[in-house]
Design a protein around this nucleic acid. Structure first.
Lengths: 186, 186
DNA sequence: GTCTATACCTTGATAGAC
DNA sequence: GTCTATCAAGGTATAGAC
């Protein structure tokens, strides 16, 4: 892994653990054994690093989407849930949620990139929800896009909320949503 | 309103707009016409101000809970939704969500106070959900506490997410949840 | 690409006068 | 209670040598 990638991955983790405004170049330099000035060689400004982190996240997500594109909708839902299960296991939060709370403090470049990321997530989830309903795997009322917003909201906030209540709550929330969505044979 | 209250209210707004680590004493001093040193008279440290903000939020919520305690469950649900509608109108986020993303950077006093606040919210919502189901106003499966977690998650994240997608999405999410919950006469 | 050195700014916080 | 003055710490960022 290149130093550039190392920096991005560490920054990603720090943002999701502490928030964008609380992590510093020094923390990165300290861990990967490189001086703060050297980080500026790879990323001239903190905003450049911020956008790179979001880009990295979008690439990973795109790969995941591609890798399950021929799988049934319920498998896609599982994959989607797994993203947040992993996040929650580390007591972190998701990138979108972390950056959304700091939105007003971000540079326009970072803001726009973040909107791209949320757009990608929303499009994917909307698509496999619609697909699952058509194939009678899922059941829900209204627009697929609205249902996607509801489900994404749930995951996004669950990882935040279970920092305050109980780690076990995450699983309960997840199972409750799944149960509501999966069509019961009555 | 006392200077102390002025400071708390402004800090509350700043946390929900920019995040805990991005707001500074200077911003407060600038707005309410008092020097930063004077703020330290009221709140020796930033953590003291942080806990005071959460306390203030808990007091307001307790008053709201008390004011609707004899009302039917669906009115309570409306009141609960209205809290987030107001937040969303200002493009802000809720205090719990904002502080949850910064959780690891907060002093223990602030962390504990925040857990108290989330406990209060969760207890109230669980209670009126259980009550509403018993009176056959609401319908849902499983524990009231789990359903409360799901609904709180939705509101908490909606105000964050609609910063990135579309302001109108908030209302759609809200209506979708309400429709799912309110018992249909079939 | 990475280093040293350093500039420059913003913060939270304190001391002491009024 | 509020002020002025001041501090130490920590942050991003740049210049220039290697």
């Amino acid at each position: 892994m290149s130093k550039r990638e190392e920096i991005i991955e560490l920054a990603d983790n720090l943002i999701r653990q502490k928030g964008y405004n609380a992590f510093s170049f020094y923390e990165i330099s300290d861990v990967i054994g490189i001086k703060t000035a050297s980080i500026h060689y790879h990323f001239p400004s903190k905003s450049d690093l911020g956008t790179a982190v979001i880009d990295y996240c979008m690439c990973n997500l795109s790969e995941l989407i591609e890798s399950v594109k021929d799988k049934p909708a319920d498998i896609k839902l599982d994959k989607f849930f797994t993203i947040y299960s992993k996040i929650q296991k580390d007591s972190k939060v998701c990138l979108v949620g972390s950056l959304a709370t700091d939105f007003d403090t971000l540079d326009h470049n970072v803001q726009n990139k973040l909107k791209e990321l949320s757009g990608l997530i929303l499009a994917w989830v909307s698509e496999f929800l619609a697909e699952g309903r058509k194939q009678e795997i899922f059941q829900f009322e209204g627009l697929a896009r609205t249902k996607a917003l509801v489900i994404i909201s749930n995951m996004l906030a669950s990882v935040q909320l279970t920092r305050l209540t109980n780690k076990a709550d995450f699983k309960k929330i997840k199972e409750s949503i799944r149960k509501d969505l999966i069509k019961q044979s009555k």
